[in-house]
């Protein structure tokens, strides 16, 4: 979706301002938001892509002005309500008023090191040969789906070159909508600066994206 999250090439935000000796967290509540997001995700009721969609569905003015942990807090709250795990009133009160749903899994403290170390690999066995090979010219599709996608606006309808074929990876666009998991070939596609940004762009710069096969056409 063309939400507040799709930032590549937007202007007017001013310079990057790194914080000297930045702490890992700016307050205890950020730690809890991080941990709650990971633990809630481990229940297994939504994919990482659906959680991204919950964040990018915030009104753009909110998305652009909230801190990132605030965005995570809003996204998680909305997911819990959407999946029936909580009501808005319960979130407000901090106490149950309805019976809990039974989660598929509950991440236990003792299992955290192993679960984090294992992660959640996204590569899947290939069901068909890759359509493109390293060195092939491609053109990204033009689309403006109302749902989640990982093809940024600045890279739609652009000519690029396949630099790497990364195996078949879980396809985010459908998984974010709660559809059964599918996988597609994933490619690194490189674009020149001028292809993306026009004739005045820095010709000594290039940008790559990771693109699923359905984002690409021969070009």
């Amino acid at each position: 979706m063309n939400g507040g999250q799709d930032l590549g090439g937007q202007m007017g935000f001013g310079p990057v301002r790194p914080e000297e000796d930045e702490p890992i967290f700016h307050g205890d509540w950020e730690k809890r938001v991080l941990a709650l997001n990971i633990a809630a995700g481990a229940m297994g009721h939504w994919t990482i892509d659906e959680s991204r969609h919950a964040r990018e569905s915030l009104p753009p003015a909110d998305y652009l002005s909230f801190s990132y942990y605030r965005i995570w807090l809003e996204g998680l709250s909305n997911l819990l309500v959407a999946h029936g795990f909580a009501t808005p009133a319960e979130l407000e009160a901090g106490a149950p008023a309805t019976p809990p749903l039974q989660p598929r899994r509950v991440l236990k403290g003792a299992d955290v090191p192993a679960v984090l170390r294992r992660g959640f690999p996204y590569e899947r066995p290939a069901q068909a040969p890759a359509r493109f090979a390293v060195g092939d010219g491609v053109r990204t599709v033009v689309m403006h789906p109302p749902h989640h996608t990982r093809l940024p606006r600045y890279a739609r309808g652009k000519r690029g070159t396949i630099e790497r074929v990364s195996g078949c990876h879980v396809f985010p666009d459908t998984g974010a909508q709660g559809q059964p998991e599918t996988a597609q070939w994933l490619y690194t596609v490189v674009f020149t600066g001028p292809e993306l940004w026009g004739r005045d762009a820095d010709a000594t710069s290039s940008v790559s994206i990771e693109a699923w096969e359905s984002y690409l056409e021969p070009g």
Binding site: L36, A40, F85, V106
Partner: peptide, 14 residues
């Protein structure tokens, strides 16, 4: 309270 998360897991993640 709803049994969705284990407090020990939250602490271990942090």
């Amino acid at each position: 309270a709803k049994g969705y998360v284990d407090p020990a897991a939250l602490d271990a993640i942090v």
